[in-house]
Structures are given as C-alpha cells and as structure tokens.
Design a protein around this nucleic acid. Sequence first.
DNA 1: TCCTTTGTTTAATATGTTTTAAACTATTTT
DNA 2: AAAATAGTTTAAAACATATTAAACAAAGGA
Lengths: 157, 157
Amino acid sequence: MEKARDMLIEAAVNLGESLGLNRAVCQIYALLYLSNAPLSPTEIGKTLEMSKGNVSINLRTLEQWNAVRKVWKKGYGRPLYTANENIEEIIFDKLKTGMEKRLNYVKPIMKQVRKDGDKKLSSKNEKFFIRVNKIEKLIEKIEFFLRNFETIRTIAK
Amino acid sequence: MEKARDMLIEAAVNLGESLGLNRAVCQIYALLYLSNAPLSPTEIGKTLEMSKGNVSINLRTLEQWNAVRKVWKKGYGRPLYTANENIEEIIFDKLKTGMEKRLNYVKPIMKQVRKDGDKKLSSKNEKFFIRVNKIEKLIEKIEFFLRNFETIRTIAK
DNA sequence: TCCTTTGTTTAATATGTTTTAAACTATTTT
DNA sequence: AAAATAGTTTAAAACATATTAAACAAAGGA
C-alpha cells in the first residue's frame, strides 16, 4: 500500500505547484493526510527521505496555515503531528489571507491616484481614469467574492 | 501623471506575486493596460528600464495568455502591442487551463490507486481509502467549479 | 543596396528559493 | 546525572528562475 501512498504524495506535489507551494510542504501534508495515526518529525523525515531541518521548517509553515496540528500522546513529552483534513478550508483561508494583505497594500495607492487625478483632469487623461475605475471595480468584486465565498460555495453544490 | 502610472504598475507587480507571476510580465501588462495607445517593444523597454530581451520574452508569454495582442499600424511593418482589458477573463482562463492540466495528471493516479486497493481491502487500509474517496470528491468539486464558474460569477453579482 | 534601427534567441550572470549539514538546545532513557 | 535521542536554528550548498548582454536575424530608411 506504500506504493499507492507514494503515488498520491507525488500527485499532491504536482497540484501544490499550481498554488506556488514547495515540494516539502506538499509531501509532508499529504503523508499526514493519508496516515492512520499522527506521526513524529523523525518518522516523517525517514519516510520522505528528507533532512530533519527541512521537516522542522515546513512543519512550522503548515502549522501556521492550520494545515497541520500537534497531537499530545500521554506519557510522551513531544508532539506528534496530524493533518487538518479539511483541504478546502485550508486553501481558502490561505487564499483569503494572502489576497487581503495584497489588497490592503493596493487600496491606498488607488485612493492616492484618484485624489491626484481629480485635481487636473484633462481629456488626455480621461481614458487613464476610466481604466483606474475599472480596476477599482475589479477590486470590489474580488472583495465581494472573498466575503461571500462560503455562501457561494454552498449554493454551488 | 506618470507618477500615478508608476504607482499602479508597482501595485500590479505586488498583486501579480500572489498569482506567481514575475515582475516583468506584470509591469508590461500594467503599462499597456494603462496606456492610451498601443506601444512598441522599444517604448516598453525604455519606459520600464528593462532590457529588450526581457521585453521580448515576456511579451510572448503575455500573448500566449491572451493578455496582450498585436496591433498593426498601416505603413509600419512591425506590430505594436495592446492589453486585453478583460482582466477577469485572463486570470480565469489561465487558472482553468493550469488546473485542468494538473488534474489530468492526477486523475489516472487516483484511478490506479483505487484499482490496486479494491483487490485487497483490509481494515487497516479502510481509513486510507476513505481519504482517497475524499480527495476524489474534492477533485469533482473543483471540476464542477471550473465548468460552472461563469454562471456562478453571474449569480454572485 | 548598404547602413541603421528594431526585435529575437541564447549563453552568462544575477537573484531568489529550497534543502541540507552541522552546531546548538531540549527531552528522554538508563 | 550522563548518555542517547529528538528537534530547532543557522550558515552553506544546491537548485531554480529571472534578467541581461551580446550575437544574430529581420525590417526600414537612406
């Protein structure tokens, strides 16, 4: 059954690329997702033939994304790790957080551009501001989408 | 007005990062999007202070994405370039094409795993296959989403 | 036609990211 | 408490990507 597992792990790596994720995070997450029981960093490293440093770094990343969480086994003082099985939630939360951060950087710029432009609006600049308006509309649309995604998803299926 | 333009170009670079796009594609697309008239590669290179080789390579990429198209000015044998203003369409088409390619790689693997598994289903493996099922459900959901995105988008606003 | 300008291709350089190795810290076992 | 095992951190290496410079090809103007 390990062959099947390894094939699926490779598939996860492939899919992860499309989200800009590195090999190690995908491998670790997929392994934990497919495991019957929580695993220790050492076990993860051995199974994936990956240095313990790499395991450590990427486990932390996965924890920050809420993609993985610690599990405490009694009588054993170190944490094991298990996957958050709700993949949809993980992807969406990450997308949402990332997008919001970017938009918060962009929005003040848009405001500034608009303010400067209102002062001196020549016909040559008109087209420029039509496009600025279009971008602002698009940003609103994205924000609407992020706010209402849960609802949309429910309607969709 | 060039200051405003440059600020918006920087904003585009920032947003592009979240989609895994490189600096040059974002800059070139944004410049063309905000320009009143089509531009030549030389003009683009000068404005963005970028080597002509880089302009050439990334213009081709943008053309392949349908993000930019050639415009022929009569009496002039070289093409100028202009932006496809439908940003939403560009992003979605790219997402769709990319996702479909990945899923077509993953789906045969899923089938293979399921086939191998049906032969010898022990209770230890049961949990494993429950998770395989979950992934298949998720893939179906993504495919549904890609097929029906246009519709969903219309409903959403 | 020849010279100049513009655009493409490719090899090299520069930049950024991922992974490892090794030094360090913390925990467990004896 | 000492030795062994496990985990973290960091500096270096391996690897990947983006950018440029320069050689080449195509087009425009003299």
